[in-house]
């Protein structure tokens, strides 16, 4: 039985301060009750702890996560797991905009739908969305993998760099420099592992892969006097 923190009587500041004060390597389990959409819950964790949030979280839940496993049994606001470096964040409901924005590592799982700009500027993390993802997802995505089990909105992968996108459903439109690419056996294997890690049962062969055409990599401009 881990620690239980009730946010109807404890502040977010107190919760985060306690989490940050845990000794290096701590593996504590913390259950958070009555989050009621509060922002910055479990932000800045850098210990391999487990945090279960019972209810809806606001903006930047598990922001900049390192090592920790954070589960949200509800929906999350803007920027869940933004700039995550490692660890695992699992949203059992839906996620608002910019889920996993700029995340460098770790795994973000969203069982429901993700709103616009999911995986924007992602830099190496893996994101698996069980439902649909909104417009401009993977905008300027640099590295990592974004898996969308449902449909993708407009301008998918606009200005994408080296991130890889897998979509099972429809794609409303592709953004600038984003193209469909061949699904090789290695990509199927990669996707299978991602789906398994996220606890998904979808068939990898039903997905298509998207990535950069790399036509925007050079600006074609200098001071050529």
């Amino acid at each position: 039985m881990g620690t239980v923190i009730d946010l109807s009587v404890t502040s977010v500041r107190s919760l985060n301060a306690d989490l940050h004060a845990l000794p290096a390597g701590a593996t504590d389990s913390i259950r958070v009750l009555r989050p009621d959409g509060r922002h910055s819950l479990a932000a800045g964790l850098d210990r391999p702890v487990t945090v279960e949030i019972d209810g809806h979280a606001g903006y930047y839940c598990a922001g900049m996560n390192q090592l920790a496993t954070v589960s949200v049994h509800g929906n999350v606001g803007v920027g869940v797991a933004e700039n995550m470096m490692s660890g695992r964040v699992h949203v059992h409901g839906d996620a608002s905009q910019s889920a996993g924005a700029t995340a460098h590592g770790g795994l973000l799982v969203i069982d429901g739908n993700a709103s616009a700009r999911c995986g924007i500027s992602m830099k190496g993390a893996d994101i698996v969305v069980g439902g649909d993802a909104g417009h401009m997802s993977a905008f300027m995505a640099q590295a990592g993998r974004l898996v969308i089990c449902g449909d993708a909105g407009d301008a998918l992968g606009d200005s994408i760099y080296e991130a890889r996108i897998y979509v099972r459903g429809s794609v409303a439109s592709l953004g600038a420099d984003c193209v469909q690419k061949e699904m090789s056996p290695s990509h199927l294997a990669e996707l299978s592992l991602l789906l398994a890690a996220a606890g998904r049962a979808e068939d990898p062969s039903e997905f298509r892969r998207y990535g950069s055409a790399r036509t925007l990599y050079h600006f074609h401009s200098d001071n050529a006097y």
């Binding site: 985060n16 932000a43 933004e82 700029t102």
Partner: peptide, 20 residues
């Protein structure tokens, strides 16, 4: 990438303060 406008910026500043 993860905030738009001054109201969001207030929440972003709050996150940075929490992390530090």
């Amino acid at each position: 990438p993860d905030w738009t406008g001054p109201d969001d910026l207030a929440i972003k500043i709050g996150e940075l303060r929490e992390i530090t």
